[in-house]
């Protein structure tokens, strides 16, 4: 997820202080991993430098001055562009597993075990997500469902590969 564009989206709804951005971000997207203040201010500094946000108020306080940030027209264009653009699908897992399976076949190791081990791990995670989903609110359900559908797609690939192992073995050993 793009932190900068997420911040822009939060600032488009209303101007905010850095700590307020962090609070709202953690509430909606943190999922147990809250942002560090360092990340917040580094990101705001970059957005400021690129002209996507501006400081619209500085309030004196007991500590350092508190800056309130607002989004610029360029920032609105940037976040709109990001929101309308599809994300690249990531075939991250298959390439690693494919390499393992081929290496197993080349070295006469049981390639099916690699697929079964991965399948068991996928299902373990899917069970965990399903439990979390059943105990959670709608936001939890949607986030978990997204992960579940991706894991299910991986599992289908594992099943298909398991069904084609004999053909793959014949090809890689040729």
């Amino acid at each position: 997820m793009s932190l900068g564009q997420t911040f822009l989206g939060l600032l488009e709804s209303q101007p905010r202080h850095g700590y307020d951005i962090k609070r709202v971000y953690d509430e909606h997207f943190g999922r147990g991993r809250s942002l560090h203040y360092g990340q917040v201010y580094a990101t705001l500094s970059r957005l400021l430098k690129n002209g996507l946000v501006e400081v619209d108020a500085v309030e004196p306080g007991e500590g350092p001055e508190r800056k309130r940030y607002s989004i610029t027209d360029a920032g609105v264009t940037d976040v709109a562009d990001w929101l309308s653009r599809p994300e690249n699908p990531e075939p991250y897992l298959q390439s690693t597993l494919y390499t393992k399976v081929v290496l197993a076949l080349l070295t006469d190791r049981p390639a099916a075990d690699i697929l079964d081990t991965q399948r068991a791990e996928h299902l373990r995670l899917m069970r965990e997500l399903t439990r979390r989903k059943m105990d959670g609110d709608l936001a939890d359900q949607l986030v978990c469902d997204h992960a579940l559908f991706h894991l299910e797609a991986d599992l289908r690939w594992l099943e298909l590969t398991a069904a084609r192992l004999d053909r793959l073995a014949a090809e890689v050993r040729r």
Partner: peptide, 26 residues
């Protein structure tokens, strides 16, 4: 369907009429 199986405590896979308990296979 894996998403349906994820409601279970564990899974047993059947292939060619033989069973394999994945938790045991690990």
């Amino acid at each position: 369907e894996a998403r349906v199986a994820a409601y279970a405590d564990r899974e047993v896979v059947v292939r060619d009429g033989r069973t394999r308990d994945l938790a045991v296979a690990r």
